[in-house]
Design a protein around this nucleic acid. Sequence first.
DNA 1: GTTCTTGCAAACCCTTTGCACGTCT
DNA 2: AGACGTGCAAAGGGTTTGCAAGAAC
Lengths: 162, 162
Amino acid sequence: MKHREIDVEKLREQFREFLRTKMYRNTQERFRVLERAAELDRHFTADELYLYMNQRGDKISRATVYSTLDLLTRCNIVTKHRFQGDSATYELTARKPNHDHLICRDCGYMVEFQDSALVVLQDEIARRYGMRALSHAFQIFATCDDSNCQRRLHEQSPTENA
Amino acid sequence: MKHREIDVEKLREQFREFLRTKMYRNTQERFRVLERAAELDRHFTADELYLYMNQRGDKISRATVYSTLDLLTRCNIVTKHRFQGDSATYELTARKPNHDHLICRDCGYMVEFQDSALVVLQDEIARRYGMRALSHAFQIFATCDDSNCQRRLHEQSPTENA
DNA sequence: GTTCTTGCAAACCCTTTGCACGTCT
DNA sequence: AGACGTGCAAAGGGTTTGCAAGAAC
């Protein structure tokens, strides 16, 4: 099952609005980063996006990619993850809203799952401390619980919830 | 309210057992890292621990601190966090079991909270995908929802749950 | 025209590594 | 004795920065 199509025009609009509000300039590079990030329908690192863009013929520097990803993160168009060990990974927030990660500590196999209980909890806990929740990051570290753990790297399957 | 006292002897025992099982050696340095980490009753970075130990008169290298923290993480005596941006932070797992973090995106104010629902969810979701949960990391990003957000940096207060 | 952004390369920070020496078993 | 761990300094990888040239306003 493919998840929702991303409305890039809407994102551009949202980004334009953010830049306007914060008095940043509308540059071609910034909007190109957004577009290419939207094309990559997956998690990516800043460097992967940089390489992808230059392969595709956009001439852009790492510095610009990093700085634009920072802007896009600040306005919540992109979500930045810091999983254990590696470099930061990014993804479009609209790609799959409110999903979290279940990661095998042994083989790195990762499942993206959605569970509405987390959003409820997020809001409730923040309220308990007089704060207002914006988003959350939830990672479950687990084991495949299976002797051929490595094999499962490219599998997928289970029951949806939410 | 002070949280539970940490039983360092028990941790030493646990570490000894881990090293034995994995055929690693019992060295003074490794146990000293554990002891000093236990003294720091808070989150710390590898470098902070390194500096603390050398201030306290232990002669130890960064390499050893890093490698021992890795061992301690692998046997779950220490928990490693990767919050946004910064370097990795560590803390004794026994310090405050199963707690998570609520972070103000504007001022950095951080609350450590406990909620038993998360452990239940962690187990249930892992099971749903045929995996066995070991631990989780849950961060809520929020705003203080308050005009003097910065002021709250050193406050604390709320209702316990669990 | 002024200010902000870009691109490049160098700098930076955290972490890991190679190697010689020391320590554990 | 032999294998593993430590310390040091250097390398490594990801990210940020300083500065000159270019684009936005």
